[in-house]
């Protein structure tokens, strides 16, 4: 990704406030994002909300990159400020097994979004009030949006369990 540096007042303020916690402030196709260290995500979100007017959470999602050493998942929060009419992506990377802090105390709307991430990627959020599967049944095995989860494998497992034969396709 060929990014351009993002260096507005907000980016400078972020760096001043969090120092080493901020890894990168960039922009791609006029969309700004800030990469933070995983243990600083919630702090940064709380600061953006209370000090900078990013009053609403738009979305939270994950990108799975199994080939990347030591930092398999990208966790992305998209926040929006009504007063500034500005969107910002807060990104962080960590490896499988790491439990990022939950954003629910900052944005109540993160509740279902983080549940969906747990459901689809198997990432557990530390301190989440209600971390259950949301879209898939409770007895579902695996987390389908991980790259190593194949559509066919799930299908074959189902066929095996329910029809008692080796493979459906």
């Amino acid at each position: 990704m060929i990014t351009t540096p993002w260096d507005t007042e907000l980016a400078q303020e972020l760096r001043r406030q969090f120092g080493q916690g901020i890894v990168e402030c960039s922009s791609y196709l006029e969309q700004n994002f800030v990469v933070v260290r995983p243990d600083h995500t919630v702090e940064v979100l709380a600061w953006l909300k209370t000090e900078q007017g990013f009053d609403t959470i738009v979305d939270a999602t994950v990108v799975d990159c199994p080939k990347r050493e030591g930092a398999r998942f990208d966790l992305i929060y998209i926040v929006y400020s009504h007063s500034r009419n500005e969107r910002l992506r807060v990104k962080t990377s960590f490896d499988d097994g790491y439990e990022p802090g939950t954003a629910v105390p900052v944005y109540a709307g993160a509740n279902w979004l983080e549940r969906e991430i747990f459901d689809m990627f198997g990432i557990r959020f530390a301190g989440h009030p209600d971390l259950r599967r949301i879209l898939l049944p409770d007895d579902w095995r695996g987390h389908p949006l991980r790259k190593d989860s194949s559509i066919l494998a799930m299908d074959q497992q189902w066929v095996k369990d329910n029809l008692g034969i080796e493979s459906g396709q």
Binding site: M1, I2, Y28, L29, D59, T61, V63, I78
Partner: peptide, 22 residues
């Protein structure tokens, strides 16, 4: 498309409908 990621949203009848593509 070249390597990159975007978030684009529209005002759907029910609210903000967004696509985040990587």
């Amino acid at each position: 498309p070249p390597v990159g990621e975007v978030y684009v949203s529209v005002e759907a009848p029910k609210g903000e409908l967004g696509y985040f593509l990587v």
